[in-house]
C-alpha cells in the first residue's frame, strides 16, 4: 500500500554561510518530515539555526546541500517565478518584527499578497476584509499600520498571511515582540488556524511555553536536530503561553 507523501520532507539538509575560514555551518544533517495539517514547533536557542531552517522551508533561501521536498518536488527544481508563486499561494509568513508597510493602512497591508496573486481584482477587497475580520480587526481596517499596537500589528500580519488561503503558515517567533496579553491573543489565532481551518503551522520559537501549543516539537541545537517528539500535554488555545 502506497503511503501518502509528506507535505515537507528534508534529507541531510545542510546550510553553510560564508567561504573559506569565515565559513559557518548553520544547519547540518537535518532530516524530518511534516505532514499536511500538522502543527509543528521548531525550537531552539538563539543562533541554533531555526530561523535559517524556516527560511529554507519558506523558499526564501536555499540549502547548501541535501534535499528539500515540498509536495514531493525538490525545491531546487523550482524556477524563481515558481518559488515566488509558491510563497504567494501556498505559504503565509508571520514574522517576529511584523514587517508591515508603516505608511499603508491595515487593508492595504492585507491586500499586498493579493496584488501578486492571480485572484481577480474584484475579489481582493472582500478577501482582505474577511481575513481582517478573522483576526478581529474590523474596527482598524482604515488605520495606518504605524498607528497600531504590537499585538494589532501581528494580527494584521496574520491576516496578510491568511488572505491567499495558504496551505502552510510559517510563524517566526510571532509573540517575540508582544506583551503577554497580545501574545496570548496571537497564539489563540494561530492555534485556531490549525485546529479549525486545518492549516499546517510551522512555528519557530525559543520558548517552551509557546512551543507547547504545537502537536510536535523539533528541537535544534547548533544546527542539528536533537529531538523530534510529540507534545504530551499540549496547551489549549486559550492557555496563557507565557506562564
Amino acid at each position: 500500500m502506497k503511503t501518502k507523501e509528506p507535505l515537507i520532507r528534508l534529507e541531510n539538509l545542510k546550510k553553510v554561510y560564508g567561504e573559506g575560514d569565515s565559513q559557518t555551518t548553520a544547519l547540518l544533517d537535518v532530516d524530518f518530515s511534516i505532514n499536511e495539517g500538522e502543527f509543528v514547533a521548531i525550537m531552539g536557542a538563539s543562533g541554533s539555526g531555526k530561523s535559517t531552517l524556516l527560511h529554507i522551508l519558506g523558499f526564501l533561501d536555499k540549502q547548501t546541500s541535501g534535499i528539500y521536498y515540498y509536495g514531493g518536488k525538490n525545491n531546487l527544481h523550482f524556477s524563481e517565478p515558481q518559488l515566488a508563486a509558491l510563497r504567494n499561494k501556498e505559504l503565509g509568513f508571520v514574522f517576529q518584527a511584523f514587517h508591515l508597510l508603516p505608511k499603508a493602512t491595515v487593508l492595504e497591508n492585507v491586500l499586498l499578497p493579493l496584488a501578486y496573486s492571480d485572484e481577480p481584482e474584484s475579489q481582493w477587497e472582500r478577501l482582505a476584509r474577511e481575513a481582517i475580520s478573522a483576526v478581529d480587526l474590523n474596527h482598524r481596517v482604515d488605520h495606518l499600520a504605524v498607528s497600531l499596537s504590537g499585538g494589532e500589528k501581528q494580527r494584521v500580519a496574520i491576516a496578510r498571511a491568511l488572505v491567499n488561503n495558504p496551505s502552510v503558515i510559517f510563524a517566526d517567533e510571532p509573540t517575540g515582540n508582544l506583551d503577554s496579553v497580545s501574545g496570548k491573543k496571537v497564539m489563540e489565532i494561530i492555534h485556531k488556524l490549525n485546529s479549525l481551518y486545518k492549516r499546517t503551522v510551522i512555528l519557530i520559537t525559543h520558548e517552551t511555553s509557546t512551543a507547547e501549543h504545537a502537536e510536535r516539537i523539533i528541537k535544534i541545537k547548533d544546527g542539528r536536530v536533537v529531538s523530534d517528539e510529540a507534545v504530551k500535554n499540549r496547551r489549549a488555545a486559550e492557555d496563557d503561553y507565557s506562564k
Binding site: 526564501l60 524563481e80 510563497r87 514587517h99 499586498l112 501578486y116 496578510r160 491567499n164
Partner: peptide
C-alpha cells in the same frame, strides 16, 4: 530593503 524583502516573501518576483 525591508519592503523589497517583504514583497518577495509575499510572492513578488524579481521582475515585479
Amino acid at each position: 530593503t525591508k519592503e523589497i524583502g517583504l514583497r518577495k516573501a509575499l510572492g513578488a518576483t524579481n521582475s515585479d
